[in-house]
Simulated scan of single mutants.
Amino acid sequence: MSVTRVELAGRSYEVRVGSGLLEDVAVQCGPLLRKQAVPIITDANVAAYWQEAVTGSLTAAGFEPHFLVLDPGEATKSWQVLEQVVDWLLDQEVERGDHILALGGGVIGDLTGFAAAILKRGCGFIQLPTTLLAQVDSSVGGKTAINTRAGKNLVGAFHQPSLVLADLDALATLPSREMGAGYAEVIKYGILGDHAFFAWCEENGAKVVAGDAAAQEYAVDQSVAAKARIVAQDERETTGTRALLNLGHTFGHALEAETGFSDRLLHGEAVALGMVLAARFSARKGYISQDDAARICAAIGNALLTTEIASLDLSCRGADLVAHMLHDKKMDAGTLPFILLRGIGEAFVDKHVDLAEVGAFLDEELAR
């Protein structure tokens, strides 16, 4: 097991990466659990694989697990389900000093974390991420949120977990599509700030998606370490450093909105395509070479992720996608910052992008 600390003033916590952590959850989480009853929020897919193991560990240690099992999918990050979760936690008599366990992928982690943030003005929670995407990105850093009609993650709070347990054994239960979606957030760290890690991803990305245990462990370790460094420098995204983690997300969230936040396009798939678009737009602006943009596209495609908008068969114009971007939570004084590239491993925030130019660029991409 490897341990990475997310260093925050007075609120540092550990991200533990290894095998067997869910089967050992009582030992790992025990010091944080004050009461016999342990509230756990998960979804039906995850429960089918891990509810028995988590229950066995906790009951053997004298705890009493209580599960709320939700429907899987992005639609669960909603006002209606948030209300259900909060009411259930109140029925469980959760107190401010208690810890709620979030057992699942990014949807469960975001939803549970937000519920913990607002319940009694802030309760503790522990992330038990079971997808690659959640292990390398969404479980670390304290961003919690739900989706609304206006867009993705527009209602939320910064609320850090007290502990993250990334059990590598959970990755073996994922379908290849989910692995690919998670891998997008892995290669992102290389593209935005680590040329050497990007080169490693070029050589090993297909192994990560295919289930190579050693490659997966290295990918998760490196990604968590990168995320922890960035969060420690800019927890609430006020200096611009953490904003770099949004590489691919402005384009990606627009595509998710256009596809109805559905399984038609998973979040990681949208981010992957968004990074391709960010690279191509950066090349169009003359910031990076066409060769670098093509290299990024190839590396993402090698992990069997889509690199063309046309593959989505959208019936929209570039202006329609730009309209979705106007609901982006990064809007500031009427302008929308874009995360673009000066090179592989050199992302930057561009606050002077002409949205009409973005629309024209997207029209070209839709017609490729």
Score class of each variant (00 low, 15 high):
G122H: 00
L273A: 06
S19F: 06
L336E: 04
T239A: 13
M1A: 15
I118H: 00
A228L: 03
L314W: 06
D91L: 14
K120Q: 10
I344Q: 12
A145M: 04
L58C: 03
D24W: 01
T250V: 07
V17L: 06
A60L: 10
F348E: 08
Y287R: 13
D313T: 13
A213I: 09
E364P: 03
L340V: 02
T306S: 15
A206D: 12
Q135S: 06
R5A: 11
D263E: 10
L33D: 03
L321H: 09
Y287E: 01
S311N: 07
S2F: 05
I300Q: 07
T335K: 15
G62P: 10
Q36F: 00
A215H: 03
C316L: 14
E23T: 11
V358M: 13
G260C: 08
I300Y: 01
R368A: 14
A210M: 05
I187D: 02
R236E: 05
S311K: 12
L245A: 09
L22V: 06
H99D: 05
V6W: 00
V322W: 10
E308S: 15
G252L: 06
L314Q: 08
Y218K: 14
Y218W: 12
G359T: 10
I300L: 13
K120E: 01
H352M: 11
Y287A: 13
I187H: 05
P337R: 07
L244N: 05
K77R: 08
A115C: 08
L133Q: 03
L165E: 09
T335A: 15
I126E: 07
L89V: 04
R295I: 06
E83N: 13
D98R: 04
L366Q: 06
K285D: 00
V15K: 12
A303C: 15
E178G: 12
S311H: 10
A206G: 11
A53E: 10
L165P: 11
A254M: 10
K329G: 12
V349G: 10
L89S: 06
D110M: 07
A333R: 15
A228N: 06
F63N: 08
V276F: 08
A333I: 04
F348T: 09
I187Q: 02
G142Y: 01
A75K: 14
V107Y: 06
S162D: 11
G122S: 08
A232I: 01
V220Y: 00
G180M: 06
G113D: 00
T307L: 05
R280D: 02
G248P: 10
K77T: 04
G211Y: 05
S139W: 04
G113W: 00
R96C: 07
L305I: 08
A145V: 05
H352C: 11
Q135D: 02
S282E: 03
A347F: 03
Q80E: 14
A206Q: 13
T239R: 15
L304E: 12
E93V: 11
G274I: 02
A319F: 07
A283T: 00
I40K: 12
A367D: 13
S78H: 08
L266W: 08
